[in-house]
Nucleic acid binder design. Structure first.
Lengths: 232, 232
DNA sequence: TGTACATCAGTGAACGCGCGTTCACTGATGTAC
DNA sequence: TGTACATCAGTGAACGCGCGTTCACTGATGTAC
């Protein structure tokens, strides 16, 4: 609680307060309702003062997005590395569970990243890298299993994958540094998207009145997709 | 282009114009940016006049949501019935493709239904039934295949499904009128959620720069989940 | 067919609100010599 | 250690905007007799 000494310390502290006030506002009003003025109000500043710390509302949104991607990415990476010695399927399921947990704990942050785009806001390039951390954490599980020779060959061959999709897969394989059969890549993408589809449905109450045991259902579906990838 | 005769005809016509103006606004500004005033402006009315046709902004949103669910539901049902004589897997894939097509054609309508909740708006009960049309259309494909004895038994048994989930599945089985093994229900739910996860990612550009052939990828993943259900 | 009344659609002004952003300013903190 | 100047944080007023909703009103359309 000491008063900060240097200007820089002060600036950092106020910036922190501003960002966490913004995050609280986000949790209450959603991304579309986030306003610089309400953030200023919450930290007891006059509205024009926040412009000392932030270029514009869009700038604030971008920072929130990057912070959130990093926070979720870290959660996924943490889970994946904490279960590095578990069975591959358990590791996949645990990482998925961590992603779901994070999403339920801060639904508005999840919706900021994966929900409707904020009207009038266009995400800049800077969000691409932190946004890739989650899929990369998932891929690392598959990669490790494959490298160790533990990956069960795909049950269903990828007979029907069109040539254009092969091109995408080849390029993707280089980016994520994995030499896997198309069927494995396809199943991994299926698992990745299924996970987020399920979380999104749970958060937006699409399954209202139909499912009670969301945790159980989520785990069962991720284990199914993990199994499909060849994880055991 | 005739002037309408009766008051009722007039009222219906103006209501139609109002709703489609609202839909255009939705496409431009997104659900959070939709305003009664802009809708009034677009149909050349004074802002207070729309209250003759709509109770409030929330009422307008509710109507848009119901209309959209019905439109998407009809598209899914249409595809499923049009491919009733195709192979089950083709039928599943075609229905999924119709859902994706609809979503790409009117992304804001998709986001209205499955994106971030509109701040300050709580969906009333009335949206539940139209919202169920899509999953029911998908379930009907599985049901038909099962009834005809064409459903291949599940590859992966549902060893690990917890008891609470069984309860959900039993109740669900009654609601959707299908007597299927838990593994089939699980795979169907997985396919359903995967589909929407993939569409959501495509619409919000999560796969930007990584995937070009979205149609091909989508079809490959839905065929994979369909196969998992036991459709051939 | 004609008159008297009721219903309805649309107007225009107003209330009270919140928003992003700019700008000239004051006073405190930091820096160079 | 002391002074002169530059930098920075925060203020307060203002601009121009859009929003949802209410209300008393006018004039046209419909209905009962």
């Amino acid at each position: 609680m000491d008063a900060p000494r240097t200007r820089q310390q002060h600036r950092e502290q106020v910036t922190d307060e501003l960002m966490s006030a913004a995050r609280r506002q986000l949790a209450q009003a959603g991304a579309a309702g986030l306003s610089l003025r309400s953030v200023a109000r919450e930290i007891g500043m006059v509205s024009s003062a926040v412009y000392r710390y932030v270029d514009s509302r869009d700038d604030l949104l971008t920072r929130l997005i990057i912070e959130s991607y990093d926070s979720l990415g870290a959660a996924a990476e943490h889970a994946a590395s904490e279960h590095a010695d578990s069975g591959d399927l358990d590791r996949w399921s645990a990482t998925a569970a961590a992603i779901r947990r994070w999403s339920l704990d801060q639904p508005h942050d999840y919706l900021l990243l994966y929900g409707s785009p904020v009207p009038g806001y266009a995400a800049p390039q800077d969000t691409t890298t932190p946004g890739g951390r989650v899929p990369l954490a998932l891929v690392s599980i598959v990669r490790d299993a494959r490298t160790a020779g533990r990956l069960v060959p795909p049950v269903e061959a990828d007979r029907a994958a069109p040539a254009t999709l092969r091109v995408d897969f080849d390029r993707l394989a280089e980016v994520i540094d994995i030499e896997a059969a198309p069927a494995i890549m396809l199943a991994t993408i299926t698992g990745w998207t299924q996970m987020f589809g399920m979380i999104g449905f749970e958060l937006t109450n699409q399954t209202r009145g139909v499912i009670d045991d969301h945790a159980g259902l989520f785990d069962a579906t991720t284990r199914l997709t993990g199994w499909l990838i060849g994880l055991r």
